[in-house]
Design a protein around this nucleic acid. Structure first.
Lengths: 216, 216
DNA sequence: TTTCTTTTGGGGAGTACACCCCATCCGTGC
DNA sequence: GCACGGATGGGGTGTACTCCCCAAAAGAAA
């Protein structure tokens, strides 16, 4: 079964390139083109494509709005975003609008083809640089690496020891890592704890993560 | 910069096939192999790979547990799941465990290579048949995706104890808080540590923060 | 020069932890 | 009924940790 494609992009050159690229695919057929959101909707109605390749930057509306409009009228039509934008915001909005795929224009041609085929059979292709956003959202664990400023009154060495401590290393492990005696490590740890008013390794771990000294 | 790979699969034949397949890649180098979860962990420590190719069905533990263990000890090591399983359950668990990619064994070789490269630069490759699950999850829960039940295999009580442990409480403090014996707290702690393959309070703290169980 | 800080290290006391053993009670499932 | 897992506890062993004491060398600051 051939995949019926509708190309939506306001640049004729881009559409031509896509036609050139995709015409080599036996199982695909380009059944229509559109240069605006309004046209995209009417063309979808007219040609009943399997998959719509949707640009985001369109003259009248955004491709996001066009996607939403198409999915409301034709829920079975799959839409793959093909755009220069690689930021989280557009990506999430396209997903919310109902897109079945998201491919940056810089992607390799094979990736676009994979995305189209995936969309056609009800699956979803996400470009790796965008997929990570979704996974991060899924894990919902925000931990943007904080500034590595050193203003807690610790000395250079103490800071170094703290890093190891926070990573869960034992005194002996740290000693061997820093090539000093375990007793010295202990000494540093005591000083760190006194300065920071902490009293356990668990406290040190949380402190270090809060300060961005280590990642969780 | 070459990508250092560790292959984890209990079938030697599979590993051989992967070596054959990946040896053609100039920017990749296979630096180790493992046939079990335990071996995976020790090999990771030994060879410090960039990316671990992780099977799920392993003799001693699941690849999910192995992934969790590796990510806790070596957060920077990227892990790509390579498995015969294509169901939602395993997929979500691997993501929760910290995987940077998920590729079914039936996928095309190029897709595996893409996934490895994506993981190596901190991105995420998700196979289309799995990606749709994540998108559906994203759309259904809209904001608080992921972390809702005990995907880590802990019981209700253990989860409760873990929270206190992660906050730095001692056994005695937790005992008095939960109105049980310190010995019981210890019992729970042991079970938690065994299930999560952790061995110190510091590990527990980092685990809990990563999971969003407590804030840093 | 003298003082202070940093880094290095040892001894020891008391506590907490990590990891084993054991058992009982209770509810769910077969 | 019986098995099974979960929650509850006790005992013990060895190690690691937390916190005190002490000191000395090197370098910066007074």
């Amino acid at each position: 079964m051939t995949i019926r494609l509708l190309l939506v992009d306001d640049h004729a050159v881009v559409r031509s390139g896509l036609k050139m690229l995709l015409s080599g695919q036996k199982d695909m057929e380009i059944v229509g083109e559109a240069a605006s959101a309004a046209e995209a909707l009417s063309e979808t109605e007219r040609v009943q494509p399997t998959v719509v390749l949707m640009d985001i930057g369109l003259p009248d509306q955004t491709g996001i709005e066009a996607t939403r409009a198409i999915k409301i009228k034709f829920p079975d039509v799959k839409i793959v975003a093909l755009t220069i934008h690689e930021d989280e915001e557009y990506f999430f909005q396209m997903l919310n609008a109902g897109a079945s795929g998201y491919v940056p224009k810089r992607a390799a041609p094979e990736e676009l083809i994979t995305a189209i085929k995936a969309a056609a059979i009800g699956e979803v292709y996400l470009y790796p640089s965008l997929a990570k956003f979704l996974v991060r959202d899924f894990l919902s664990t925000e931990q943007p690496a904080g500034e590595k400023v050193n203003l807690d009154g610790l000395t250079e060495r103490e800071h170094e020891v703290l890093t190891h401590l926070a990573e869960g290393a034992s005194n002996v492990e740290i000693a061997s890592s820093l090539v000093i005696s375990p007793k010295t490590v202990e000494r540093h740890r005591e000083n760190i704890m006194r300065k920071l008013n902490l009293h356990s390794r668990s406290d040190l771990v949380r402190y270090a993560i809060r300060k961005g000294i280590i990642k969780a």
